[in-house]
């Protein structure tokens, strides 16, 4: 198999990322925006009682709703670019995997590591939750959690690759997967326990927060599923013209 050029990988990863981002923005626009509106209403009524200050908003709600799309396009751009670099680096070491399983597995593992697992530790909150005083503290731990989450996935992945080499052929598949799962689960649980929880109080109604979190998690899962399928599909397609060219070349030679 010939490795794909980085330009081709970046192009397809970014396109798929932007499309998946738009898809999730539309999902949130329809389902999550009403909850965001409701939270903002509750938040402003609470604030009026507490401070009685009318806040003039530079960015009004219409702009913020449009910003939802901008934000998820940035989300797609971010992971399109960062994932394409990862894929570029590992495509040769992983050339024994099929294109589809390599690209989809990597994308799903990335989504789990950078979005879904961090969500379980630090679940999303609707507007009205979040103390501006603690934003730096929360951002620091959130980023550190993502970084370590990626690191332990890499570790388990490397162990899995190591065990699938010929020298480990004597081991049963069960014992191999048990080792890999253990090598992931133990540090993952430690990471989950060791990190401090979100320090902010949650003054919003519990049912509203719960609904917001379900939709937020669903949005992230939707993004990474769409991204993995789209990227894998383009990756498989990208090899076809190459193969067709080789066939033509072989025919001409003969």
């Amino acid at each position: 198999m010939e490795s794909r050029s980085l330009g081709s990988i970046i192009l397809s990863a970014v396109i798929v990322g932007l499309i998946a981002g738009l898809l999730v923005a539309a999902f949130h626009f329809v389902l999550t925006e009403p909850i965001i509106e409701r939270s903002i209403e509750i938040e402003s009524s609470l604030r009026q009682v507490q401070e009685a200050t009318a806040e003039t908003l530079l960015v009004d709600r219409d702009a913020q709703r449009a910003g939802l799309f901008l934000g998820f396009l940035l989300y797609g751009l971010t992971w399109g670019l960062l994932f394409s670099v990862l894929y570029h680096i590992v495509q040769n070491p992983l050339r024994d995997m099929s294109t589809f399983s390599r690209s989809s597995t990597l994308a799903l593992l990335t989504g789990w590591s950078v979005a879904l697992f961090p969500f379980l530790k630090y679940p999303a909150n609707p507007p009205g939750v979040g103390d501006p005083e603690t934003i730096q503290y929360r951002q620091t731990f959130y980023l550190a959690f993502i970084a370590l989450s990626v690191a332990i996935t890499c570790l388990a992945f490397v162990i899995q690759r190591y065990l699938s080499r010929p020298h480990a052929a004597g081991r049963s598949p069960w014992s191999k997967w048990a080792i890999v799962l253990g090598a992931y689960a133990v540090p993952a649980v430690l990471l989950y326990i060791a990190f401090p929880p979100n320090p902010d109080p949650v003054p919003m109604p519990a049912s509203l927060v719960e609904m917001f979190r379900i939709l937020s998690f669903a949005g992230l899962a939707l993004f990474w599923l769409a991204y993995a399928v789209g990227f894998a599909w383009l990756a498989v397609r990208a090899e076809r013209p190459e193969r067709a060219k080789n066939v033509i070349f072989a025919i001409k030679k003969a």
């Binding site: 702009a63 934000g71 940035l74 979005a115 999303a124 507007p127 979040g130 959130y142 937020s216």
Partner: peptide
Amino acid sequence: EITHDARHAAGFPC
């Protein structure tokens, strides 16, 4: 402020 809704929905600290 512009990325506000996406920050909340994607679970980033806000």
